[in-house]
């Protein structure tokens, strides 16, 4: 059982991911935007982050950058989740240093297997 922080500005999407992650036995901390994600990360020990790329205030890329500045999150897996299916965005995500990449609509089985892989 690990603690996962999910940052996503649409409540329905947030609930969807939370439900899926809880169904495989993890604890989920929710954040509605990048700012809140960083605040909650400061107050909790997090094992994995799932960040929506397009969020108001601070987007997924920014959050990643801030997280990596902190020594305790230097090596924490951070997954990007996005509705974009463009190759160029995918490359951008990889270049920015995300650990993994998920497209919306999410394939539930894929998400589960990624969690398993990264939280061994």
């Amino acid at each position: 059982m690990k603690r996962i922080l999910v940052a996503e500005d649409r409540p329905a999407s947030l609930e969807l991911i939370r439900t899926i992650l809880e169904s495989i036995g993890h604890e989920v901390i929710e954040a509605a935007d990048g700012q809140e994600a960083l605040e909650k990360a400061a107050r909790n020990s997090i094992d994995l982050f799932v960040l929506d790329l397009q969020m108001p205030k601070l987007d997924g890329f920014e959050v990643l950058k801030q997280l990596r500045k902190q020594s305790r999150f230097q090596h924490t897996p951070v997954i990007a989740i996005t509705a974009s299916a463009m190759e160029s965005d995918r490359e951008r995500v990889i270049a920015a240093g995300f650990t993994g990449y998920i497209t919306k609509p999410v394939d539930i089985r894929f998400l589960r297997s990624e969690m398993e892989r990264l939280l061994k």
Binding site: R10, A12, S13, L16, I20, A83, S84, A85, M86, T103, K104, P105, V106, I108
Partner: peptide
């Protein structure tokens, strides 16, 4: 891109 976002929760 815009259309896939709500579809994500519908399908999910």
């Amino acid at each position: 891109h815009e259309l896939r976002t709500p579809l994500h929760t519908i399908i999910g």
